[in-house]
Computed example of a mutant assay.
Amino acid sequence: MRGMFATGPLTVGDPAGDGGRLRVRDVAGRTFDERTGQPLNPSLRGYVADMAAPYGIAVREELIEQGAGRSYGEMCVPLLAELVSEDRPADLLVLATAIPDVHLGRATATYLSWQCAGAPLAFAVCDQGLLAAFTALHLIEAYARTGECRRAVLLVAEQPTLFHELPAPAPVPDRAAAVGVVLDTAGSRGALSVRRHTRVAERDVAGVLAAEVAGLAGDGPEPAVLLGARLAGMVTVRSGGDVRVCPPNQPFTGAWLELSRGFSGWHESGARVLLAEYEPGLGHLFSAAIRCGG
């Protein structure tokens, strides 16, 4: 049973440690432009072929032969070394992805737990499209309310290598990238709030998002707004603060990379930051608000 943890649903009404309000303590991001040439796994070709065959999807034999791609474990371990230390260990680690890892035989979240100070409880959130990172944050908030999670790490990662053709059009990045976000109940760099709007028609997205931005208005600098790839071209945000739109070539991590690039400056000025993304197929608009310097 070593390396395995069994848990159940969170208990409603559990007391919250330190108020249960997580704050973003630090953020770091990295991009990777070159492929590593992973050693060829002899069983990979058969595994991918078996998975793709029932759906009539072509296998990309040349990428398997090249050992193409960069694994999420390889990408995220340096972020953990930068963000988490033995004197400030993590209690929870959540990996959010939209594209499968190239290291198909590894339980990546478990592997990352072993590489993280504190050997935290770890799991992955996937099959949520571009909204996976927001779902991960929502779950981290819930764990914080139990009082058992003082420090959590969110890892948001994407990579462009698929060993089979896409069964339907979907956004794919042109390079690998990973972002780590440390959330701490004892931190002071901005309280976190995650909001999930469901059944939002495309015509209503601008109004809902405008209300989200207005909700952050107050004393101090105007809020910064980081829009995900699906919101690019859909809405025009009216804010006196910094507005950044995720480029289509980095659809999953783009907004989070912008958070890593601007966070120290926003914290210094006390600005508020709103990250938002929309999934038109589901009609879901998710957002995460960070009150920097709170």
Rank of each mutant, 00 (worst) to 15 (best):
F123W: 05
F123I: 03
F123N: 02
A124K: 03
C126H: 13
C126W: 05
D127E: 10
Q128C: 15
G129E: 05
G129Y: 02
G129F: 13
L130Q: 09
L131P: 01
A132K: 13
A133P: 02
F134G: 06
F134D: 11
F134V: 00
T135G: 08
T135W: 12
T135M: 01
A136P: 02
A136H: 04
A136S: 08
A136F: 12
L137T: 03
L137P: 00
H138E: 15
L139K: 02
L139C: 00
L139T: 12
L139R: 06
L139E: 12
A142P: 11
Y143V: 05
Y143R: 08
A144M: 12
A144Q: 04
T146G: 01
E148S: 14
E148T: 12
E148I: 08
C149E: 09
C149Q: 03
C149N: 12
C149S: 15
R150N: 06
R151G: 07
R151L: 05
V153D: 06
L155Y: 05
L155N: 02
V156S: 08
V156Y: 00
V156Q: 13
A157C: 04
A157M: 05
A157W: 00
A157N: 01
E158V: 08
E158S: 04
Q159Y: 02
Q159F: 10
Q159I: 05
T161R: 13
L162I: 07
L162D: 07
L162N: 11
L162T: 08
L162G: 01
F163H: 06
F163G: 03
F163A: 04
H164Y: 11
E165C: 13
L166G: 01
L166P: 01
L166Q: 11
L166K: 04
